[in-house]
Nucleic acid binder design. Structure first.
Length: 295
DNA sequence: ATTTCATCCTGGAGGC
DNA sequence: TGCCTCCAGGATGAAA
Protein backbone atom coordinates (compact mmCIF):
# COMPACT_ATOMS: atom_id res chain seq x y z
CA UNK A 1 0.00 0.00 0.00
CA UNK A 2 2.59 2.52 0.84
CA UNK A 3 4.08 3.84 -2.37
CA UNK A 4 7.24 5.87 -2.86
CA UNK A 5 6.07 9.06 -1.06
CA UNK A 6 4.76 7.17 1.94
CA UNK A 7 7.90 5.07 2.30
CA UNK A 8 10.02 8.21 1.88
CA UNK A 9 8.14 9.85 4.75
CA UNK A 10 8.52 6.81 6.96
CA UNK A 11 12.26 6.74 6.17
CA UNK A 12 12.64 10.45 6.99
CA UNK A 13 10.75 10.02 10.24
CA UNK A 14 12.88 7.08 11.30
CA UNK A 15 16.06 8.86 10.20
CA UNK A 16 15.37 11.59 12.77
CA UNK A 17 15.05 9.15 15.62
CA UNK A 18 16.92 5.86 15.27
CA UNK A 19 20.42 6.44 13.81
CA UNK A 20 23.06 6.18 16.52
CA UNK A 21 20.80 4.10 18.74
CA UNK A 22 21.84 0.61 19.72
CA UNK A 23 19.47 -2.29 19.20
CA UNK A 24 19.16 -3.78 22.67
CA UNK A 25 16.53 -6.42 21.93
CA UNK A 26 14.43 -7.84 19.12
CA UNK A 27 11.34 -9.95 19.29
CA UNK A 28 9.70 -11.53 16.33
CA UNK A 29 6.12 -12.72 16.72
CA UNK A 30 5.94 -14.48 13.37
CA UNK A 31 8.78 -16.29 11.61
CA UNK A 32 6.98 -16.23 8.27
CA UNK A 33 7.70 -12.56 7.60
CA UNK A 34 11.46 -13.12 7.52
CA UNK A 35 13.62 -13.80 4.45
CA UNK A 36 10.91 -15.43 2.42
CA UNK A 37 9.29 -14.31 -0.83
CA UNK A 38 5.83 -15.59 0.01
CA UNK A 39 5.03 -18.26 2.51
CA UNK A 40 8.16 -20.26 2.97
CA UNK A 41 8.86 -19.52 6.58
CA UNK A 42 12.50 -19.83 7.60
CA UNK A 43 13.35 -22.28 10.33
CA UNK A 44 13.42 -21.25 13.95
CA UNK A 45 17.18 -21.70 14.18
CA UNK A 46 17.76 -19.57 11.08
CA UNK A 47 15.64 -16.83 12.59
CA UNK A 48 17.51 -17.03 15.89
CA UNK A 49 20.80 -16.82 14.03
CA UNK A 50 19.67 -13.68 12.20
CA UNK A 51 18.33 -12.02 15.32
CA UNK A 52 21.55 -12.75 17.22
CA UNK A 53 23.51 -10.91 14.53
CA UNK A 54 21.33 -7.81 14.84
CA UNK A 55 21.11 -7.45 18.61
CA UNK A 56 23.90 -5.26 19.96
CA UNK A 57 24.47 -3.37 16.71
CA UNK A 58 23.95 0.33 16.22
CA UNK A 59 21.66 1.76 13.58
CA UNK A 60 23.87 3.69 11.18
CA UNK A 61 21.40 4.87 8.55
CA UNK A 62 17.85 4.78 7.26
CA UNK A 63 17.13 4.96 3.55
CA UNK A 64 14.64 4.06 0.88
CA UNK A 65 14.87 2.25 -2.45
CA UNK A 66 11.61 2.27 -4.43
CA UNK A 67 8.97 1.15 -1.91
CA UNK A 68 11.47 -0.62 0.33
CA UNK A 69 12.98 0.63 3.54
CA UNK A 70 16.61 -0.02 4.44
CA UNK A 71 17.96 0.19 7.97
CA UNK A 72 21.76 0.17 7.88
CA UNK A 73 23.67 -1.31 10.80
CA UNK A 74 27.10 -0.54 12.26
CA UNK A 75 28.48 -3.91 11.06
CA UNK A 76 27.78 -2.94 7.44
CA UNK A 77 24.72 -5.19 7.37
CA UNK A 78 21.17 -4.06 6.87
CA UNK A 79 17.56 -4.85 7.53
CA UNK A 80 15.33 -4.45 4.49
CA UNK A 81 11.59 -4.03 4.91
CA UNK A 82 8.93 -4.38 2.25
CA UNK A 83 5.77 -2.90 3.73
CA UNK A 84 3.30 -4.63 1.42
CA UNK A 85 -0.25 -3.28 1.43
CA UNK A 86 -0.72 -2.45 5.10
CA UNK A 87 2.70 -2.48 6.75
CA UNK A 88 3.62 0.44 9.00
CA UNK A 89 6.13 1.43 11.66
CA UNK A 90 5.31 2.71 15.08
CA UNK A 91 7.80 4.40 17.40
CA UNK A 92 6.48 4.01 20.90
CA UNK A 93 7.18 3.54 24.57
CA UNK A 94 7.62 -0.11 25.65
CA UNK A 95 4.65 0.09 28.02
CA UNK A 96 2.22 1.02 25.23
CA UNK A 97 -0.12 -1.96 24.68
CA UNK A 98 0.95 -4.11 21.77
CA UNK A 99 -0.86 -3.46 18.49
CA UNK A 100 -2.96 -6.42 17.34
CA UNK A 101 -0.80 -7.13 14.29
CA UNK A 102 2.64 -6.16 15.59
CA UNK A 103 4.99 -8.79 14.13
CA UNK A 104 8.44 -7.39 14.94
CA UNK A 105 9.57 -5.32 17.90
CA UNK A 106 12.96 -3.65 18.01
CA UNK A 107 13.90 -2.17 21.38
CA UNK A 108 16.44 0.66 21.15
CA UNK A 109 19.01 1.85 23.66
CA UNK A 110 16.94 5.04 24.08
CA UNK A 111 14.26 2.85 25.64
CA UNK A 112 11.85 3.42 22.76
CA UNK A 113 10.46 0.61 20.67
CA UNK A 114 10.19 0.40 16.92
CA UNK A 115 7.29 -1.86 16.00
CA UNK A 116 6.43 -3.27 12.60
CA UNK A 117 2.65 -3.63 12.36
CA UNK A 118 0.97 -5.21 9.33
CA UNK A 119 -2.54 -6.63 9.48
CA UNK A 120 -2.63 -8.24 6.04
CA UNK A 121 0.87 -9.68 6.44
CA UNK A 122 1.99 -9.04 2.89
CA UNK A 123 5.00 -7.25 4.34
CA UNK A 124 8.39 -8.98 4.52
CA UNK A 125 11.68 -8.40 6.30
CA UNK A 126 15.18 -9.42 5.15
CA UNK A 127 18.58 -9.26 6.79
CA UNK A 128 21.82 -8.87 4.85
CA UNK A 129 25.36 -9.18 6.19
CA UNK A 130 26.40 -6.51 3.72
CA UNK A 131 24.29 -3.65 2.39
CA UNK A 132 24.85 -3.21 -1.32
CA UNK A 133 21.76 -2.69 -3.40
CA UNK A 134 23.63 -3.55 -6.59
CA UNK A 135 25.38 -6.65 -5.35
CA UNK A 136 24.69 -9.94 -7.09
CA UNK A 137 24.24 -11.44 -3.61
CA UNK A 138 21.62 -14.13 -3.94
CA UNK A 139 19.63 -12.86 -0.98
CA UNK A 140 19.52 -9.38 -2.41
CA UNK A 141 18.14 -10.90 -5.59
CA UNK A 142 15.68 -13.01 -3.61
CA UNK A 143 14.46 -9.84 -1.94
CA UNK A 144 13.70 -8.46 -5.39
CA UNK A 145 16.24 -5.66 -5.11
CA UNK A 146 18.23 -6.78 -8.13
CA UNK A 147 15.26 -6.51 -10.44
CA UNK A 148 14.11 -3.00 -9.59
CA UNK A 149 14.05 -0.45 -12.37
CA UNK A 150 15.22 3.15 -11.95
CA UNK A 151 13.48 5.59 -9.64
CA UNK A 152 11.33 8.13 -11.52
CA UNK A 153 13.75 10.87 -10.41
CA UNK A 154 16.68 9.01 -11.97
CA UNK A 155 15.43 8.26 -15.46
CA UNK A 156 15.80 10.57 -18.47
CA UNK A 157 12.93 11.46 -20.79
CA UNK A 158 14.57 9.62 -23.65
CA UNK A 159 15.17 6.47 -21.63
CA UNK A 160 11.54 6.35 -20.51
CA UNK A 161 10.40 6.84 -24.08
CA UNK A 162 12.65 3.97 -25.20
CA UNK A 163 11.16 1.68 -22.54
CA UNK A 164 7.65 2.60 -23.60
CA UNK A 165 8.38 2.04 -27.29
CA UNK A 166 9.69 -1.46 -26.61
CA UNK A 167 6.63 -2.63 -24.71
CA UNK A 168 3.17 -3.52 -25.93
CA UNK A 169 1.24 -3.43 -22.71
CA UNK A 170 -1.21 -0.84 -21.53
CA UNK A 171 0.41 2.13 -19.84
CA UNK A 172 -1.28 1.57 -16.48
CA UNK A 173 0.17 -1.93 -16.12
CA UNK A 174 3.57 -0.68 -17.29
CA UNK A 175 3.66 1.99 -14.58
CA UNK A 176 2.99 -0.61 -11.90
CA UNK A 177 5.82 -2.87 -13.12
CA UNK A 178 8.62 -2.26 -10.63
CA UNK A 179 11.21 -3.80 -12.94
CA UNK A 180 10.66 -0.98 -15.45
CA UNK A 181 10.17 2.01 -13.18
CA UNK A 182 10.29 1.57 -9.42
CA UNK A 183 8.19 3.35 -6.82
CA UNK A 184 4.77 3.96 -8.33
CA UNK A 185 1.73 2.09 -7.06
CA UNK A 186 -1.96 2.24 -7.84
CA UNK A 187 -2.62 5.75 -6.52
CA UNK A 188 0.25 7.58 -8.19
CA UNK A 189 -0.04 5.64 -11.44
CA UNK A 190 -3.65 6.83 -11.81
CA UNK A 191 -2.85 10.38 -10.70
CA UNK A 192 0.14 10.67 -13.05
CA UNK A 193 -1.86 9.45 -16.04
CA UNK A 194 -4.60 11.99 -15.29
CA UNK A 195 -2.07 14.81 -14.95
CA UNK A 196 -0.57 13.95 -18.31
CA UNK A 197 -3.90 13.41 -20.10
CA UNK A 198 -3.16 9.80 -21.02
CA UNK A 199 -5.91 7.16 -20.96
CA UNK A 200 -4.82 4.17 -18.81
CA UNK A 201 -5.58 1.57 -21.49
CA UNK A 202 -3.37 3.25 -24.09
CA UNK A 203 -0.68 0.95 -25.50
CA UNK A 204 2.79 2.02 -24.37
CA UNK A 205 4.36 1.74 -27.81
CA UNK A 206 1.81 4.24 -29.13
CA UNK A 207 2.58 6.90 -26.55
CA UNK A 208 4.20 9.83 -28.32
CA UNK A 209 7.52 11.34 -27.33
CA UNK A 210 5.76 14.50 -26.13
CA UNK A 211 3.30 12.48 -24.05
CA UNK A 212 6.11 10.42 -22.59
CA UNK A 213 7.96 13.60 -21.58
CA UNK A 214 4.81 15.05 -20.03
CA UNK A 215 4.16 11.80 -18.19
CA UNK A 216 7.61 11.77 -16.59
CA UNK A 217 7.25 15.42 -15.62
CA UNK A 218 3.84 14.69 -14.05
CA UNK A 219 5.13 11.65 -12.16
CA UNK A 220 8.00 13.60 -10.65
CA UNK A 221 5.86 16.58 -9.75
CA UNK A 222 3.13 14.48 -8.14
CA UNK A 223 5.60 12.39 -6.16
CA UNK A 224 7.35 15.54 -4.93
CA UNK A 225 4.08 17.16 -3.89
CA UNK A 226 2.94 14.05 -2.09
CA UNK A 227 6.26 13.67 -0.28
CA UNK A 228 5.92 17.27 0.95
CA UNK A 229 2.32 16.63 1.99
CA UNK A 230 3.35 13.59 4.00
CA UNK A 231 1.89 11.00 1.62
CA UNK A 232 -1.65 9.70 1.15
CA UNK A 233 -3.55 8.02 4.00
CA UNK A 234 -6.50 5.73 3.56
CA UNK A 235 -7.15 3.24 6.33
CA UNK A 236 -3.66 2.18 7.36
CA UNK A 237 -0.89 4.48 6.35
CA UNK A 238 0.72 6.52 9.11
CA UNK A 239 4.22 7.87 9.38
CA UNK A 240 6.50 6.75 12.20
CA UNK A 241 4.83 9.22 14.58
CA UNK A 242 1.32 8.01 13.78
CA UNK A 243 0.44 11.05 11.65
CA UNK A 244 -1.70 10.76 8.54
CA UNK A 245 -0.57 12.15 5.19
CA UNK A 246 -2.37 15.10 3.62
CA UNK A 247 -2.15 14.20 -0.06
CA UNK A 248 -5.56 12.50 0.12
CA UNK A 249 -7.31 15.87 -0.39
CA UNK A 250 -5.18 16.57 -3.45
CA UNK A 251 -6.11 13.41 -5.34
CA UNK A 252 -7.79 14.16 -8.67
CA UNK A 253 -9.02 10.72 -9.73
CA UNK A 254 -8.00 7.97 -7.33
CA UNK A 255 -11.07 6.74 -5.40
CA UNK A 256 -13.19 9.57 -6.84
CA UNK A 257 -15.41 7.33 -9.01
CA UNK A 258 -18.60 9.17 -10.06
CA UNK A 259 -17.40 12.48 -8.67
CA UNK A 260 -16.90 15.45 -11.01
CA UNK A 261 -13.48 15.87 -12.57
CA UNK A 262 -11.69 18.76 -10.86
CA UNK A 263 -10.82 20.14 -14.31
CA UNK A 264 -13.86 19.56 -16.55
CA UNK A 265 -16.65 18.31 -14.21
CA UNK A 266 -17.08 15.05 -16.17
CA UNK A 267 -17.78 12.08 -13.85
CA UNK A 268 -14.64 10.13 -12.99
CA UNK A 269 -14.82 6.51 -14.20
CA UNK A 270 -13.42 3.33 -12.70
CA UNK A 271 -12.36 0.25 -14.68
CA UNK A 272 -10.28 -2.81 -13.84
CA UNK A 273 -6.95 -3.22 -15.65
CA UNK A 274 -5.02 -6.44 -15.00
CA UNK A 275 -6.75 -6.83 -11.68
CA UNK A 276 -6.18 -3.31 -10.38
CA UNK A 277 -8.93 -0.73 -10.14
CA UNK A 278 -8.10 2.24 -12.32
CA UNK A 279 -9.61 5.73 -12.12
CA UNK A 280 -9.62 8.29 -14.92
CA UNK A 281 -11.51 11.18 -16.50
CA UNK A 282 -12.93 10.08 -19.87
CA UNK A 283 -12.76 13.63 -21.22
CA UNK A 284 -9.34 14.75 -19.98
CA UNK A 285 -7.82 11.35 -20.86
CA UNK A 286 -9.12 10.43 -24.33
CA UNK A 287 -8.67 6.84 -25.53
CA UNK A 288 -7.35 8.00 -28.89
CA UNK A 289 -4.21 10.00 -29.42
CA UNK A 290 -5.13 13.65 -29.81
CA UNK A 291 -5.03 14.64 -33.50
CA UNK A 292 -2.67 17.55 -32.89
CA UNK A 293 -0.19 15.18 -31.27
CA UNK A 294 -0.40 12.42 -33.85
CA UNK A 295 2.59 12.21 -36.17
C1' DA B 1 10.81 -13.44 -23.49
C1' DT B 2 6.67 -11.12 -21.98
C1' DT B 3 2.52 -10.71 -19.90
C1' DT B 4 -1.41 -12.08 -17.11
C1' DC B 5 -3.39 -14.64 -13.27
C1' DA B 6 -4.15 -16.50 -8.83
C1' DT B 7 -2.49 -16.16 -4.46
C1' DC B 8 -0.76 -14.69 -0.05
C1' DC B 9 -3.90 -12.20 4.37
C1' DT B 10 -7.26 -9.40 7.44
C1' DG B 11 -10.91 -6.30 8.03
C1' DG B 12 -14.22 -2.76 6.70
C1' DA B 13 -18.27 -1.61 3.94
C1' DG B 14 -22.50 -2.55 1.98
C1' DG B 15 -26.40 -5.68 0.58
C1' DC B 16 -30.05 -8.63 2.16
C1' DT C 1 -27.61 -8.48 14.48
C1' DG C 2 -25.64 -11.75 11.29
C1' DC C 3 -24.09 -13.64 7.19
C1' DC C 4 -22.30 -13.06 2.68
C1' DT C 5 -19.69 -10.92 -1.00
C1' DC C 6 -16.62 -7.64 -2.58
C1' DC C 7 -12.85 -4.63 -2.14
C1' DA C 8 -8.23 -2.70 -0.56
C1' DG C 9 -1.42 1.86 -1.31
C1' DG C 10 1.86 -4.95 -3.34
C1' DA C 11 4.72 -8.57 -5.25
C1' DT C 12 5.48 -13.24 -6.70
C1' DG C 13 5.86 -17.80 -9.09
C1' DA C 14 3.46 -20.31 -12.35
C1' DA C 15 1.06 -20.57 -16.43
C1' DA C 16 -0.16 -18.94 -20.97
Amino acid sequence: MPELPEVENIARGLAEVIPGKKISAISLMRNDIVNCPQNEAVTKSEVENILSKIVGQKVSSVSRRAKRLLIGLSSGGAVLIQLGMTGRFVITEPQTPLEKHAHLIITLSSGKQLRFVDHRRFGRVWYFDQLDCNSPDSQMIAAGMGKLGPEPFDISQSDLFKLLSRSDRNIKTFLLDQTKLAGLGNIYADESLFASGIHPTRTTSEITKQESAKLLKSIKSILKKSISAGGTSFSDYRNAYGDMGNFLNMLKVYQRTGKPCKVCKTAIEKIVITGRSTHFCPKCQPVDIKKDQAV
